[in-house]
Write a protein that binds this DNA or RNA. Structure first.
Lengths: 253, 253
DNA sequence: TCCCATTGGACTGATACGTATACCTTTAAG
DNA sequence: CTTAAAGGTATACGTATCAGTCCAATGGGA
């Protein structure tokens, strides 16, 4: 029977994956670009600065740059006022992009299935438990979003309004989570924010203008301590965002 | 002004954290134990096997073992039929545990608030998406729970049936999460189990006998693909567990 | 009783990865 | 045409991890 040591019942323990430093750097840079912190045509900080900011050696940064260049995400120009330049998205193979988008679609659906559940509950708890300090932060975030939208309505092509909007939006939702006084909900919302921007990027501020329309009523419901209404509005809000994102992925941009 | 090179506008890019291999190993093993994949008193596979299973060298495993021993999670015995032994967490007397758990009352409430939300949704999705393989695992877990209850009904005072019940219970709920086909829900359920394992321990298997009564109907609802019923039963089940736990904390036992 | 298989403990040399540092090359701006 | 600001290249060093070998304890079976 050749009976070696068969019999291992089940693999309760899986292989560990050791992530290389340069991979972490690749992820970080890719994420920053996806978030709209660096727009096409713009330059990243010089390699030496990146190295310092990321607490990593320049060699490691350069390995990461190689990967990003190979992926068509960056271009490199040498010489004075050269640097690491963020590529235009169109430079990339359309077919590859479609496949990419489709994969992201699945990820996004998972995220939104999760998000509805979590944020609805979060809104409900927040309405019951919020303090005035929470309201204050939320109001600040609302104002910041308005401002960002106003700034972006100009022909201005700065990255700042986009990043600013995303930051404020995140701050708004996170404050609701904080108001829920539940650390697990807070952690989940945080995870959602992180996961969401990876597949999508901060490209579509315009789509979110209407989504933003629901922020104010949501604020009011929470201020009024109306848990049911808050939950309802939040559910709608998340659904609206989901629709907008899916349309975006379907190429209607 | 002293104007050095101030002006770095914002740190769009954060330091990366390089995780050592042995840390990953520690995390894996700790997780497996938290989830009841290895019960107190049981042995982990020999270092050499662990190394192979985790695609890592034995030296790395040993570094991780040092950490786990220092944390009091493992004991090491040398020689033939020695090995890495999972320590018993709840060797303490019930009263002491109750005091400990009382301190954890707030934390437990947070966990259950979160748990209702998450596991209800999980059950609903599971009913819609489960495969036959999921049912098989769930059935195995059900049987294991019955067996554990039977074993504990004896005058037996071993920790084993208790831990075994918890492990099977965890396996049951985790499999539902797996059937939901949503990685975020799965991660959350796992986090819940890990958070509950410590404060709850195996103190009160008797209380859970009735809770266990709901496992079978829950299984049926999921097998029937009845999402609404599954969600409802799950909500009740979690509530029942919560009540039982709170009563225990209030000393009714 | 005694041998021996099993399992943790300890050591060594090889290698890959990341760091630190210095220096070269390209290029735009003054 | 000099200079400063990038990226490009090269070298040496430290260390984490690996692969392999041998030692030490220990319990069970011949």
């Amino acid at each position: 029977m050749s009976g070696d040591h068969l019999g291992e019942p089940d693999p309760k323990i899986a292989p560990v994956h050791l992530t290389a430093a340069y991979e972490l750097v690749v992820e970080q840079i890719r994420r920053a670009i996806d978030l709209g912190l660096f727009l096409p045509g713009q330059k990243l900080p010089p390699e030496r600065d990146l190295a310092e900011q990321m607490s990593v050696s320049r060699s490691t940064i350069r390995e990461a740059v190689r990967v990003l260049v190979a992926d068509g995400i960056l271009s490199v120009r040498r010489g004075a006022s050269g640097g690491l330049i963020v590529n235009n998205v169109h430079t990339r193979d359309p077919e590859e992009l479609r496949v990419y988008a489709k994969r992201k679609r699945v990820e996004l659906n998972d995220i939104f299935d999760f998000r509805i559940v979590v944020e609805q509950a979060t809104a409900s708890f927040a309405a019951q438990r919020r303090g005035d300090d929470n309201l204050a932060v939320m109001r600040t975030a609302l104002a910041a979003m308005e401002e960002a939208i106003a700034a972006s309505s100009a022909e201005d092509d700065d990255p700042d309004p986009i990043a600013a909007f995303n930051a404020a939006d995140t701050s708004f939702h996170m404050e609701i989570a904080r108001a829920s006084k539940n650390p697990h909900l807070l952690k989940s919302v945080e995870a959602i924010r992180r996961a969401m921007f990876l597949p999508v990027g901060g490209v579509f501020i315009k789509l979110r203008k209407d989504a933003n329309a629901m922020h104010e009523p949501l604020y009011n419901a929470i201020a009024d301590r109306d848990a049911a209404r808050a939950a309802e509005i939040m559910a709608e809000h998340v659904q609206a965002t989901r629709r907008a994102m899916m349309e975006f992925l379907d190429g209607k941009r």
